[in-house]
Design a protein around this nucleic acid. Sequence first.
DNA 1: TTAATATATTTGCCTCACTAATTATTATTA
DNA 2: TAATAATAATTAGTGAGGCAAATATATTAA
Lengths: 144, 144
Amino acid sequence: MATEKFSMYSYLLDRTARRVKQYAQRRFNAEEFDITVDQWLILKNLNNSNNQNQSDLAELTGKDHPTLTRIVDLLCKKGLTERCIHPTDRRSFTVRLTESGKEKVENWSPKVAEIRTKAWENLSEEDYENMKRILNTIYNNLDI
Amino acid sequence: MATEKFSMYSYLLDRTARRVKQYAQRRFNAEEFDITVDQWLILKNLNNSNNQNQSDLAELTGKDHPTLTRIVDLLCKKGLTERCIHPTDRRSFTVRLTESGKEKVENWSPKVAEIRTKAWENLSEEDYENMKRILNTIYNNLDI
DNA sequence: TTAATATATTTGCCTCACTAATTATTATTA
DNA sequence: TAATAATAATTAGTGAGGCAAATATATTAA
């Protein structure tokens, strides 16, 4: 593809991703959800497969290790998750939802899904599939 | 659109935007470009329309004001831009490229364009247009 | 003209991303 | 087994984004 002409995508991607996060965060705040969107991502993943070690959890959620460490710190401080010693590897922790964390995920999942839906007004399922394909292609093109 | 099923876009958007930025930043670093991708965005915009005040520049680049202030601080510290007093409004500064800043933009623009192109392997112009449309629609759907 | 309001920029505080380096532990190999 | 390498998690430093509040100056209205 030509060069200069196609440089704007990084700007569009960046600002759209930021707005998507910002919009969700404001809705979270307005509902006094008391959690960040990144923290929610971790909770939601733990709800699907609890008791992950941090490395796997980082991989699953696309966070790097230092970032994941800090997010888990914050979640533990809020009493939503806890670190447990790994049965066979003393370098590792597994992270699991507390009761309070489970409740949070269950009570809020529908609301979050509704908030997320807003972005797709005026767009079709085909758009959604196209977008998924394009984003994944870009992601893989830039494999590190 | 249905709910839960369509919630993954925020994750895909976020991780793709991050990888796009990360890839460019690593290439910048490898070339000893000595600048961040966000700083480059500001320089590039100034090159198109020099002597913007900070508010307009923030609007143009999609940065919020505090962030723009800090990026301009760093660019000034590097001697690539300078703040000039606004002729008629003493609250404002205009920002302009120094000679060194202009050189930087001119010398590096082709390289940056080449770096940016990498993301579009295996994708068509139609994909590009679709993606632009979808991202802009999402952006406007979440108008703040 | 004075008072109230609006605007441009900056500062402080918190969260997150990326890199490099550190610590503790486990696995490998000489 | 002893030395080396690899892995899991953390810490430190820098850049950036978001929000709220502060400062200085302009604009508007009473």
